[in-house]
């Protein structure tokens, strides 16, 4: 955008030369990032692609040779791949709606002008989102312990429900995963809260005067007006569900339950040392993530209302 750039003063300079000079300055300014992009993203990604066409194995690197599409053919016939893709998508489909609904609901209550100590309460709800995953893992480990944990003792058994068999059982894993995804809604909640507070007060007041109750106002005014924030939070949650960078990265001890596909890649890398196959899996994962993101952005025009946001 030309309106937001600094125009250089001398009118004697030809316009084209001036723009070229400014482009050069801009390129120089962003050059640290460009070098980093080349060194830590583009070259490794291309090298990864190269490795994925070989049988590179940590234990006998001397025997590495070009194997063409063998790894990708193997990937298509690997039953575990189908299973982990299904699991990853299933987990994303349960955790993301859960996170979105929870963060919108929480933001709606925390945005209320009736709230006492709003700053303190918002911070307390944000606390679980910043604590290290190691601490969270230990905590769930103890909380779900079949003998000494509190889940069986104070929640499941008094309710007459069967206890879980500890953190390694399937039920407990699923429970930890959903609870843990609820413990990461802080940034999403703040984004929604900011958007809700950005809604002009007159709109809400006039709806109130017309007799609209709090629930009616939430669904007919607040939600449509914060749709850009919902979209932003959706993208963040989606990226974290697929093992990418989070807005608040707490370190990924939970990667196993966060994204089973990511876990399977780790297994091939660090337990099987089958690096050729592992990089092929990683590349397939990259393509999957990109497809999901492209799909999301292409549908966003239909339901995200940018022009409505008072800016």
């Amino acid at each position: 955008m030309t309106t937001s750039t600094v125009p250089l003063p001398p009118a004697t300079q030809p316009k084209q030369r001036r723009i070229d000079r400014r482009k050069l300055t801009g390129t120089l300014l962003i050059s640290p990032w460009l070098i980093g992009l080349l060194l830590f993203k583009l070259l490794p990604i291309l090298a990864s692609l190269g490795i994925s066409f070989t049988n590179f194995h940590m234990l006998n690197p001397g025997e590495t040779r070009f194997t063409g599409l063998d790894n990708y053919v193997r990937l298509l016939h690997d039953e575990t791949v189908g299973y982990v893709v299904f699991q990853t998508i299933a987990m994303a489909l349960t955790s993301i709606p859960l996170q979105l609904v929870a963060s919108i609901g929480l933001a709606a209550i925390l945005a209320s002008r009736r709230l006492k100590w709003p700053g303190f309460l918002r911070t307390m709800f944000f606390v679980p989102s910043i604590i290290p995953s190691v601490a969270i893992l230990f905590m769930w480990f103890g909380f779900l312990d079949p003998n000494t944990g509190w889940l069986n003792r104070f929640i499941l058994e008094p309710l007459g429900l069967m206890g879980t068999g500890g953190i390694y059982s399937d039920a407990a894993r699923r429970l930890v995963f959903s609870l843990n995804s609820l413990w990461a809604i802080g940034p999403g909640m703040l984004i929604m809260l900011g958007a809700m507070q950005g809604i002009p007060r007159e709109i809400e007041e006039s709806a109130r005067v017309d007799g609209a109750g709090p629930f009616y106002r939430l669904f007919s005014i607040t939600l449509p007006m914060i749709s850009p924030a919902i979209f932003f939070a959706l993208v963040i949650n989606l990226i974290s569900a697929f093992g990418g960078v989070l807005l608040l990265d707490r370190g990924n001890v939970f990667s196993g339950s966060q994204s089973p596909f990511d876990d399977y890649i780790s297994h091939q890398m660090f337990s099987q040392f089958d690096l050729g196959y592992a990089t092929a899996l990683a590349w397939a994962f990259l393509v999957l993530v990109l497809l999901v993101i492209i799909f999301l952005f292409s549908t966003s025009r239909k339901w995200v209302h940018y022009e409505d946001l008072g800016r």
């Binding site: 750039t5 723009i19 482009k23 992009l37 990604i45 093992g243 890398m269 990683a282 990259l286 993530v289």
Partner: peptide, 24 residues
């Protein structure tokens, strides 16, 4: 500042956030 390729580099910047760690 204006950059060569217009907004393309900015999209690349956002896209790098989406790259799974394992690929690199």
């Amino acid at each position: 500042y204006p950059l060569p390729g217009g907004n393309l580099l900015f999209f690349v910047l956002i896209a790098t956030l989406l790259i799974p760690e394992k690929v690199t």
